[in-house]
Design a protein around this nucleic acid. Structure first.
Lengths: 202, 202
DNA sequence: AAATGACCATATTAGAATTTTGGTCAGAGC
DNA sequence: GCTCTGACCAAAATTCTAATATGGTCATTT
């Protein structure tokens, strides 16, 4: 009973978004009456939130299963972030939600995506914490760093303008490495062979 | 004549946004007839774009006048980026435009902000190029780096969730330095005194 | 030649009329 | 006694239409 409702809700929200699906629709899809739904969930929004929680758990799995034990920490981080992005793009319910927020600005959809982001940030920050404990990551404001990393990946993969052929995985990894891991600063002796002065800073 | 029209347009667009201002309004404000405007500009959109070009030039000035000759390259870059953000937030026409895009999604306003971003990215990339030539910045995809920097500053200053009291200038600079300039990787001997193993990477 | 403002086709708005939707609940069925 | 149903309701959303506002033009004035 409950399962059939959840399954129907999952399909409906995935195909039509939050405001696009009606409780009648879900009931019909689940083959139960509308009243039955309210025996299990107090409101449409509660049902939606419940479904979303499931997705959030899946997102975490996507990140984790992209990790390769024993591989370089930052390689893994990059892979995890890319897995997050791919999941977000491929998962029907999430991409529908993103579209809905853009198109209608539905408050509930917005709140849902916000919750998702918060969960991801939380998880990312914990992952970074592990890096710090391992001595691989410089101690810093992990919440801020997680936030910037997530936004940077999102922005680059979604909005980077030139050439429709999006960045290749390697290009993105190069960027990630060069910008976030090693930093922009050119240090003496590590640039291309044959540059004269590297000391110019105060 | 032309000047009065421009001045009136500047005021109107700043106060009411693109779709909020009418040609009649501008004419009245400038103390001329509506037909007179079309003697100088072929359309409302052309007039708007012309005004925007002026703002774009101002943005560049804001970046440049935040630079301090002889100061550390990255200090200057951070100051420039912050100046950009401040300008965007303080300038009446720009903030009105941002609001308009969010609220109504006006196509012309969206296009205008897009043009502004492109101009800034162009300018930023050139600035970075100078850094590379000076030997301070590691050679890399400057367009991408400029893009990520701009988006990162925007995101942090606009959307970073916790504690309403936004980041202080120093906190932001720390983040910038730690994340983009020096990188996340903890290198042997540079961490807090007394951490054992820093070699854990493959 | 520069400037005006009445004028027009189209886009936008306002608001009444209609439909849809989330949620309830008295009762049916087991 | 319990689950479940589906007619029902108030509120929200959508549609329809009349009225208004707007970008742009051009014959006429200055």
């Amino acid at each position: 009973m409950r399962d059939r409702i959840e399954e129907a809700a999952r399909r409906a929200f995935s195909e039509f978004g939050y405001k696009g699906t009606t409780m009648d629709q879900i009931a019909r899809l689940a083959g139960v009456s509308k009243g039955a739904i309210y025996l299990h969930f107090p409101s449409k929004e509660a049902l939606f939130q419940h479904m979303l929680r499931g997705v959030i758990a899946q997102v975490r799995d996507a990140f984790e299963s992209a990790q390769t034990e024993g591989d370089d920490y930052f390689r893994n981080l990059d892979r995890g972030l890319r897995a997050l992005m791919r999941f977000r793009a491929d998962h029907a319910m999430l991409s529908k939600l993103v579209q809905e927020v853009r198109q209608f600005g539905t408050a509930e959809a917005r709140a849902g995506l916000q919750e998702l982001e918060t969960a991801i940030l939380d998880y990312l920050a914990r992952h970074l914490k592990r890096g710090v404990d391992l001595g691989v990551v410089r101690p810093c404001r992990l919440d801020l760093v997680a936030f910037v990393l997530l936004r940077a990946y999102t922005a680059v993969l979604r909005d980077f303008p030139p050439a429709e052929g999006a960045l290749s995985e390697e290009e993105l990894y190069e960027l990630f490495t060069g910008l976030f891991v090693d930093g922009l600063r050119l240090r003496p002796g590590e640039g291309e062979p044959g540059n004269a002065q590297t000391e110019q800073e105060r």
